[in-house]
Every structure is written in structure tokens, then in C-alpha cells.
Amino acid sequence: MQLAAIAEALSLSPDHGSFKDIEVKGGYSSDLLSDVMGKAAAKSIWVTNQIHPNVIAVASLIDAAAVIIAGGVQPEEGTLKKAEEVGIPLFTTDLPAFEVVGQLYQLGVRGTARSA
């Protein structure tokens, strides 16, 4: 599924500039960054409540398609800056993580995980 279509369906606008439309291969949700580093597959859309700049570093490391910060929390300034720097599309939404994941699933996005 294309990232632009997901953004439109969930009424998400990026927290910085624009984003390059890419194919989203699946989804992952976790707030333990160590877990995401170890398990999330490339080109996943990652749903989290963490707002620390390390989120972007980890997203970049796993080659995430995008990050959605759920639950109406605002990312730290460093997180926004870093997202812009490394070109990771970063979205925030007031929807709780459960809702975001549910809506993604309805759109056909399925959970992905690398086998350990």
C-alpha cells in the first residue's frame, strides 16, 4: 500500500515538509525501541507513543517507511529536526495507538516482523 493513500485515509499530515510517496510493506507497533530495532521489518509503518529523537534513529536503522506518533503527544524538537534531516516521514495523530493500528489493518496493512 502507498504511504500517501494511508496518510489520506487516516487524515495524517507530516510534521515536517512533504514526504516521498513509497510502498508500505507492513506495520509494526511497539514503544520499546530495542524491540523495534530487533524485530521490525524494512518499509514498515511504525506506530508508537515514544517521542524521543532516538525514535528517528531507530526508524532510519530499520529503514521504516514512516513513523506515526499516536495518542496526541507532540514529538520533541530534536525528533522533528532529525526526521527532517534523515528524511523519515513523521506523522502525529490524536488517535490512540490501538485506533491507528486498527485503521491501518482495515486498509490492508499487515503486521511484519523479522524473524530473530
Binding site: 514503544d31 520499546l32 525501541l33 530495542s34 524491540d35 530495532m37 515514544q50 529523537p53 531507530v58
Partner: peptide
Amino acid sequence: RSYGLLGQLGFVP
């Protein structure tokens, strides 16, 4: 895994 710096944030910022 829980409540530790590495578990929560992956690495030391």
C-alpha cells in the same frame, strides 16, 4: 527490557 535505558530507547542518546 523494561524501564532500562537500552530497552526503552535502544541505545544511549
